[in-house]
Nucleic acid binder design. Structure first.
Length: 209
DNA sequence: CACCAGGAATGTA
DNA sequence: TACATTCATGGT
């Protein structure tokens, strides 16, 4: 399995090259983007992020000080704006109360993950995306594409988040750079070859089966 | 017109 | 524990 997962990564990297994730200027922008992209096309997220940036609100401190109705209006293009505005408030308040990004970086990864999961609006994928792409922790992010990939290639007879995450983390070196690129490459693969949900025609990974 | 996108919370059995 | 429903905009 270790060989298989590495071979899959090497093949994806050979085909698509480095993906330069997360597409953001700051750590705060990663956090905000992680919430806004929940079940939402990234293109729509970019519009919401632009709106926030143009109003100088693309940081957690400003967001915690801004009226929620204003936030709702600016993030509308990303959809689910009523709940996402609440989520952004919860998270930005937490970061401010906790002493900011640098202070939180000192916390042990498992503890920090739990703190993030305790926030309304932060599930496992969002928490792990923040840990990996903002805090640079070696945590593997599992999304719908990853689940489909695991199922289609019969990498394990599991379907829940934790087991799929363990599959990758117990069979790969705990390397933040590797996990960063791996998840991004899976997303890239899905966008290029799996635009329709059930089918994955001409998928370059089929040769590995 | 239907279906989906870099999910999570809530309710039901 | 395992599903079903809801949230909402914009692209295809």
């Amino acid at each position: 399995m270790k060989e298989k997962l590495l071979e899959m990564f090497n093949r994806l990297y050979a085909i698509f090259g480095p993906q330069h994730w997360w597409p953001a200027e700051t750590e705060d922008e990663v956090v905000v983007g992680a919430v806004l992209t929940q079940n939402t096309a990234w293109k729509n997220v970019e519009r919401a992020l632009s709106n926030l940036r143009n109003n100088d609100l693309l940081n957690l401190k400003k967001l915690s000080e801004t009226d929620i109705e204003i936030i709702k209006d600016l993030i509308k293009p990303a959809g689910f704006f009523n709940q996402k505005a609440i989520y952004l408030k919860n998270i930005s308040d937490f970061f401010c109360e906790s002493g900011g990004f640098v202070k939180l970086s000192d916390i042990n990864t498992e503890t920090l993950r739990q703190k993030l999961l305790n926030l309304k609006g932060v599930g496992k994928e969002t928490a792990d995306s923040i840990l990996l792409y903002a805090f640079k922790k070696p945590i593997f992010v599992v999304d719908a594409y990853t689940k489909r990939l695991v199922e289609r290639h019969n990498l394990c007879n599991c379907s829940n988040y934790d087991e799929i995450q363990k599959l990758f983390m117990e069979n790969l070196p705990l390397d933040e750079k590797l996990f960063n690129e791996y998840h991004a490459l899976i997303v890239k693969l899905a966008k290029e070859f799996c635009k329709k949900k059930p089918v994955c025609k001409n998928c370059p990974l089929e040769v590995l089966l």
